[in-house]
Write a protein that binds this DNA or RNA. Structure first.
Lengths: 145, 145
DNA sequence: ATATATAAAGACCTTTATATCCTTTATTGG
DNA sequence: CCAATAAAGGATATAAAGGTCTTTATATAT
């Protein structure tokens, strides 16, 4: 188990892929996305359907249809994808699973774990969907394997 | 979904509970442990059975039997519990699930995610099983709810 | 020795995550 | 309008995580 669910991992990869492939206003189909981020096609379809309903990405049916990312969404943080799919827990939950863990009622790890959580949250909140477009086009970073 | 699996969360809580309850050389039974860390008893039994096989905790059958932690194990890091239950992935895996993500073949988040991972790993490697005994005895930290 | 307390072990069951497939709906170009 | 294309939606399958129950093995006290 990683930090995010598999669904979420595919979601992040797919959104970044779509973003960099459609800055020119074009659209990209599920087949290509699935192939390029190495994910099961029909499972990914479900994920993108969900992200599209939630407005994180856009879609269009029919010939020349496909998925794309609106300009304004390029500024949204990756944390929004995580929250949409996995929820807030990873950014705010107790490290050892206590539901009432807090400053006043802390688990043993509370202080230290909070630092880690906050670093993760900060990173995901300051990293945007569009931020890697250049590097992805250059090929200096990868989304598959 | 939290950072660790539920199994792992119960495991950490239970081990810390056992540690502070058995510094005097006594043993503590599954019923008490489950009640005090608020976990399903027979599920926890499985988890402790596993941790005991792996040597992280000790156990004894029969009257006055139960679980306990050897003095030497009090020095072991919590990371050992996580690794025993969830594996290494949370400490070393790619944030977006790429199996070949590395310095040479990095995902977009590689650098930043690595920092978070490392902070988590560092924290869990420098925190020991016995470290919270006093606070748990005092009641200044909690393991339930 | 026997009765009893306790963990170990193994066989289940339930729920959630992951994944596939088939049908429907929307869009477009001719 | 028609045919082709591509996503949406729904039903279902499979695997993994989470959880329960019953029986067995082992230690202790009497």
């Amino acid at each position: 188990m990683g930090v995010f669910s598999k669904t979420c991992e595919y979601g992040i990869r797919a959104v970044l892929y779509i973003a960099h492939r459609t800055i020119d206003g074009s659209r990209v189909g599920i087949k290509e996305i699935a192939a390029e981020i190495d994910s099961p096609e029909s499972f990914l379809a479900k994920i993108l359907q969900d992200l599209s309903r939630k407005g994180l990405i856009q879609s269009m049916k029919g010939p020349n249809g496909g998925f794309y990312v609106e300009a304004e969404n390029l500024q949204r943080p990756l944390a929004d994808i995580v929250t949409a799919i996995d929820g807030e827990e990873v950014f705010s939950g107790c490290g050892m699973g206590l539901t009432h863990c807090s400053e006043k009622n802390p688990c043993p790890l509370h202080k230290e774990f909070k630092k880690v959580r906050n670093q993760l949250a900060h990173m995901m909140n300051t990293t945007t969907i569009g931020q890697f477009n250049k590097e992805l086009l250059k090929g200096s970073v990868t989304l598959r394997k």
